Simulated assay, not measured.
Amino acid sequence: MKRKKRRILIVDGYNLIGADQELHRESLHSLEMPREKILAALAEYQSVANYEIICVFDAYEVRSKESIIDYHGVTVVYTKEKETADEYIERFVHDHYHPHLCEISVVTSDLTEQNAIFALG
């Protein structure tokens, strides 16, 4: 019996907010609404796409432990204190990627992050 290949789409949430002019403008006042809009769009996309979706928001400057919640089927990760979304994503890809068992796509406009992910496969 052939195992189904896991397909994961992992998104750097704040990076995506920063890449969109409207969301970026909104984020200057509060991050709550732009986060909500990103998560709603990802949940809608997941309903038609064949991906597990993980959206990562870093809590680099916030005193907190890592927290993971479910938002309408999208896994939302708030990183622990002093951990960037980039660090979380790199660790996740390193721990979960397997060429025959798990395909991972990363959404980010951060060139350094792109290079690090490509280096992992």
Rank of each mutant, 00 (worst) to 15 (best):
99 P>C: 02
81 E>F: 12
33 M>S: 12
97 Y>T: 00
37 K>Y: 03
16 L>M: 12
57 F>T: 03
20 D>I: 11
110 D>A: 09
65 K>V: 13
57 F>Y: 06
55 C>H: 00
84 T>L: 05
35 R>Y: 00
87 E>S: 14
72 H>M: 12
79 T>F: 07
87 E>H: 10
114 Q>H: 07
9 L>M: 10
67 S>G: 06
52 E>D: 09
104 I>P: 03
84 T>V: 02
95 D>N: 11
92 F>R: 03
72 H>V: 07
40 A>N: 15
89 I>T: 00
54 I>Q: 01
22 E>D: 13
42 L>P: 04
111 L>E: 14
109 S>T: 13
74 V>H: 08
32 E>N: 13
96 H>F: 10
84 T>S: 13
55 C>S: 02
89 I>E: 00
86 D>R: 02
33 M>G: 11
35 R>L: 01
69 I>W: 07
34 P>K: 06
75 T>V: 12
96 H>D: 06
31 L>F: 13
98 H>M: 03
12 D>K: 05
110 D>E: 08
56 V>I: 05
103 E>P: 10
119 A>K: 14
12 D>F: 04
4 K>R: 14
70 D>S: 13
24 H>E: 12
103 E>F: 13
97 Y>R: 05
2 K>S: 12
103 E>L: 14
116 A>R: 12
54 I>G: 04
67 S>Q: 12
55 C>F: 03
81 E>D: 10
87 E>Y: 08
60 Y>F: 09
69 I>A: 13
10 I>K: 07
113 E>W: 05
106 V>S: 05
63 R>N: 01
73 G>F: 04
67 S>Y: 08
63 R>W: 05
70 D>F: 08
7 R>Y: 01
78 Y>S: 15
33 M>E: 15
70 D>N: 15
121 G>L: 00
62 V>N: 08
118 F>L: 11
20 D>E: 10
4 K>E: 15
4 K>A: 11
58 D>Q: 06
47 S>G: 09
65 K>G: 13
115 N>Q: 08
49 A>V: 03
90 E>P: 05
47 S>I: 02
35 R>Q: 04
38 I>A: 09
1 M>W: 09
76 V>F: 06
27 S>D: 01
42 L>F: 00
74 V>A: 08
66 E>A: 09
4 K>N: 12
77 V>A: 05
29 H>D: 15
29 H>I: 14
36 E>A: 05
60 Y>G: 00
26 E>M: 15
116 A>S: 11
119 A>V: 11
14 Y>P: 00
8 I>M: 00
39 L>K: 12
95 D>E: 14
64 S>T: 15
94 H>T: 14
17 I>M: 03
48 V>E: 11
109 S>Y: 09
40 A>H: 12
87 E>K: 12
89 I>M: 02
56 V>S: 00
108 T>G: 02
91 R>C: 04
69 I>E: 15
104 I>W: 03
66 E>S: 04
47 S>F: 04
49 A>H: 01
68 I>N: 06
82 K>P: 10
10 I>R: 07
